[in-house]
């Protein structure tokens, strides 16, 4: 099983990347700033800190999953490191899975750090511990799931496309995925049968990322129901499995000139 050493090595790569720390510092500063902004809007501290904090976590995480995700495979091909890996007793599928889980581990650690920073900001803003500080964690879990889906999508594109195009496709998929309820509505209300068919196909094919966005509700005091979390977790696992299977299939057939 070579997935674990490859995953740990991928995690080590991001853990030693200064750019990642700079981005995380930026997000944490943003969270601290949200405390100050919360002070200005009296009575809205908790809402502003959660809203701004989780949104910053999403934006940072999505950028990280897309831009690090497309580099997982393409960078290895470009710099020739793939030659060393494939000469060893490693299946190409193990390589893909190892790289994927390595980045997921990085995303998990950074998500935990950011969620902890938001919790810390809330404790500071409220002057003590409160149940509201813990209801952001289910929402943070949903964000993490969304990031793992985007990483799988970025990895899939990078198996057959250039890094620039992969980034573009992955960003488009993120945006369409976030608007998937509108896509469904469009599929139901369009007068053209062809448009309806294409919209319906896209709705089913692309990830339904809107389901993973529970930031607004959390900011307004709701806690993500466990059934929703379980359902979304199963959906994410299935979608990721399909995307990784496709990525492995393409990667297994590729030639590296």
């Amino acid at each position: 099983m070579k997935i674990i050493p490859i995953a740990l090595n991928t995690f080590r790569e991001s853990a030693r990347d200064r750019a990642l720390y700079n981005l995380m510092v930026f997000v944490i500063l943003l969270i601290i700033a949200s405390v100050v902004m919360g002070r200005i809007a009296v009575g809205q501290e908790v809402k502003i800190v959660i809203d701004l904090g989780l949104s910053a976590m999403t934006v940072f995480g999505v950028l990280m999953s897309i831009f690090l995700g497309i580099g997982l495979v393409s960078k290895e091909i470009e710099n020739g490191a793939i030659a060393n890996i494939l000469s060893k007793p490693v299946r190409r599928t193990e390589f893909i899975l190892g790289k994927y889980f390595g980045l997921c581990l990085t995303l998990f650690v950074s998500s935990v750090v950011m969620a902890a920073a938001i919790t810390g900001a809330l404790i500071y803003a409220q002057g003590g511990s409160d149940a509201a500080q813990w209801r952001l964690w289910p929402a943070a879990w949903l964000i993490f799931l969304e990031l793992t889906i985007m990483t799988a999508v970025a990895l899939l594109f990078s198996c057959f496309s250039s890094p620039a195009l992969s980034a573009l496709f992955a960003l488009l998929i993120f945006l369409i995925g976030r608007w998937s309820p509108d896509l469904k509505l469009f599929a139901e209300t369009s007068n053209s049968a062809a448009v309806r068919a294409v919209s319906r196909a896209l709705y089913h094919l692309l990830p339904n990322l809107a389901n993973f966005n529970y930031i607004n509700e959390t900011a307004h005091g709701e806690v993500a129901p466990w059934r929703m979390i379980a359902g979304n977790t199963v959906y994410a696992v299935c979608y990721i499995a399909a995307a990784l299977a496709a990525a492995a299939l393409i990667f297994n057939r590729r030639n590296f000139k």
């Binding site: 080590r12 790569e13 710099n79 020739g80 490191a81 030659a83 060393n84």
Partner: peptide, 11 residues
């Protein structure tokens, strides 16, 4: 195997 232009993880 030693590749012609070896690249190894610089980190």
């Amino acid at each position: 195997y030693l590749p012609e232009r070896p690249y190894f993880y610089h980190y």
